[in-house]
Design a protein around this nucleic acid. Structure first.
Lengths: 172, 172
DNA sequence: ACTTTAAGTCAGTGTTGTTGACATTCCAAG
DNA sequence: CTTGGAATGTCAACAACACTGACTTAAAGT
């Protein structure tokens, strides 16, 4: 029956009876929530003629300034050619700076310019606002559970990236 | 400061201090988790030459057999032209049946065929399997919190759809 | 009869992903 | 030092899928 041991009895969960209906409900919740999650940034990006791909690039460059293209490829999980188109647009528009590496001149290190930081702030604030409201509505314990389930849903290597970026102040 | 009143003290949450870093972490968790969430179905769909759009159509037709096109448009949030392309392929391949309405002959009611149900089962089981593992790892209370945050993150009309479809056995 | 609604179609466009070919740089073996 | 392979990034062409806009067909509703 594959449910012999329902986890290590970590929290207070006894068995966890999960009907297909409950699981399906979780699947649909992810679908609808993700749409809400991207709705606000999408509206902002449209004003500037950008798409979600640009947002992702901006987000992770902001998160790890000076990162190189290869690194970003690993995080974003797209092909280098696909990322390049996005990056080229952002560089041409002056939102991102690409500096040739000092030690290894093959590498390009990526930074946000002032205007890049401005857009990042606008996007980020919209998304954080929604997240903040959702967190407040759901409550403190719900937030912890939310994070725990999401992390368990990631592929292992994605989870590794996720946790690698945690080592700042979060960590708890 | 905008944080004067931290919600209506609904559950047991006292204040909820949310740093930007914590919110950002939640944003990234959504990003990585959603990728994991879609990874398994994507692999299956590729075998049949379908994409995520086909999956979504199949899912909601399975969920509400006999639904009409307009209804599906509302749920999926895409244009009629976009859905039509997908639907046409599924009908031609014999996965979906389109029956003219009895009361209103303008409407087309959509049903999965046997082979449609088979693919739905394959996709659904892959996704449920991941969800099941994540739920087990995270624990019972985490699941409740997960669901609560996701629901609070939806746009109101999306949440309405979501809850309208809940009225079967879930409801708790 | 006239208007509205449901569904489907045709044409054009844009974003985002893909593969393939290519340039540059580094590094290590000869 | 030179040469060849590996790594990094760029350019070009193509496919999938979403969007807008204009239109057709059929069936209701008034």
């Amino acid at each position: 029956m594959a449910d012999g041991k329902a986890g290590g009895t970590k929290g207070g969960q006894a068995l966890l009876f999960l009907t297909d209906e409950q699981l399906r409900k979780g699947i649909e919740a992810m679908f609808f929530a993700y749409r809400g999650f991207t709705a606000d940034p999408d509206r902002i990006l449209e004003k500037y003629g950008y798409g979600r791909a640009h947002h992702r690039a901006i987000h992770f460059i902001s998160r790890a300034p000076g990162t190189n293209v290869n690194n970003l490829l690993g995080i974003l999980g797209v092909t280098k050619q696909s990322l390049n188109r996005v990056l080229r647009a952002l560089i041409e528009d002056g939102l991102v700076e690409s500096r040739v590496g000092v030690q290894d001149k093959r590498e390009r290190h990526l930074y946000l310019s002032d205007s890049g930081r401005a857009l990042e702030a606008e996007l980020s604030e919209a998304q954080r606002a929604r997240m903040r409201v959702a967190y407040r509505e759901a409550g403190h314990e719900a937030v912890a559970g939310f994070r725990r389930v999401l992390e368990a849903m990631m592929d292992p290597d994605q989870a590794a990236y996720f946790n690698a970026m945690a080592t700042k102040e979060d960590k708890g």
